[in-house]
């Protein structure tokens, strides 16, 4: 929709050109959320596209996803064959309520900064041990695991003027066996519970709970637990008040779906060699 209070759009081409952050500013990534709701408090958009950050790069240790990488770019990336966790990328993209038409515009960084429980890029990058790099308004920089970056429903550790630069995914995480489960109140609707399980090279089992809870939650085990242990751990580690409540799922249902899908993931990963 038209954002009628916007009077200016800045198009910085480099970090040096980033304007001084002022109240009424917003970073404009894809704009698929910004333009989907009234934003009467905003005056200026700072367009990130002309920073021209390379969308995806494979380094020695990390797979780097620029904040401005679009969902479609990520989904279309030809992953090396040893990234056996790579099916998670498409599974998470498909967990958007938004259709493929929006994936071309929406960015990974925008999704993470929105910090909605149903943010599938949060599910993906937190399950894969992603580390967020943040450019601070004072010129500094800091890194935070995505898992910790999200602190609640639409809450995160960004301070005014902070800019999410990129997410680094350790290549080791992409080489893990993984399993994915998602459920929604409607067949292709917004995620109400999204769980990702994985097994690392030391046979450690990690379960990342998202969408059901107001922030991602990681449960780690030295090896694949027994059914009862997994269940008990979930019950203990995720108190009822962490389950998200909104129109897309009642907390009690999300909790039971978490228990159910966790067990499915456990069984799937256990069954595989």
């Amino acid at each position: 929709m038209d954002l009628n209070t916007i009077t200016e759009v800045a198009h910085p081409k480099s970090r040096a050109q980033l304007p001084v952050w002022t109240a009424g500013d917003a970073w404009l990534a894809g704009g698929t959320w910004l333009f989907s709701e009234p934003q009467a408090h905003l005056r200026r958009l700072i367009d990130l596209t002309e920073l021209k950050w390379p969308a995806l790069t494979i380094g020695d240790d990390n797979f780097t996803i620029a904040a401005t990488c679009t969902v479609a770019q990520l989904d279309g990336f030809a992953c090396p064959p040893d990234w056996i966790a790579s099916p998670l990328i498409n599974q998470c993209c498909r967990s958007f309520l938004a259709s493929f038409k929006i994936w071309k515009t929406a960015t990974v960084g925008g999704n993470i900064c929105m910090s909605l429980p149903a943010g599938p890029m949060i599910s993906l990058t937190s399950a894969l041990d992603g580390i967020a790099t943040i450019w601070q308004a004072d010129g500094g920089e800091r890194t935070i695991p995505v898992m910790d970056f999200i602190t609640g429903n639409q809450q995160n550790l960004l301070r005014p003027g902070d800019l999410l630069r990129q997410i680094d995914i350790p290549l080791a995480s992409l080489r893990r066996r993984s399993a994915f489960r998602q459920i929604s109140l409607t067949p292709v609707g917004r995620s109400a519970t999204l769980l990702i399980g994985s097994i690392d090279s030391d046979s450690g089992f990690a379960l990342t709970v998202t969408a059901a809870t107001i922030r991602p939650i990681r449960l780690a085990f030295a090896s694949i637990p027994e059914q009862e242990e997994l269940r008990e751990t979930i019950l203990q580690r995720i108190p009822d008040n962490l389950y998200h409540t909104d129109i897309h799922g009642k907390p009690i249902w999300r909790k039971h779906m978490t228990l159910r899908l966790a067990e499915e993931i456990r069984a799937e990963l256990k069954a595989q060699p």
Binding site: G31, F35, S36, I102
Partner: peptide, 10 residues
């Protein structure tokens, strides 16, 4: 040539 929702595109 690719479909987009024009209400979301600046």
């Amino acid at each position: 040539g690719e479909p987009v929702h024009s209400c979301l595109i600046p």
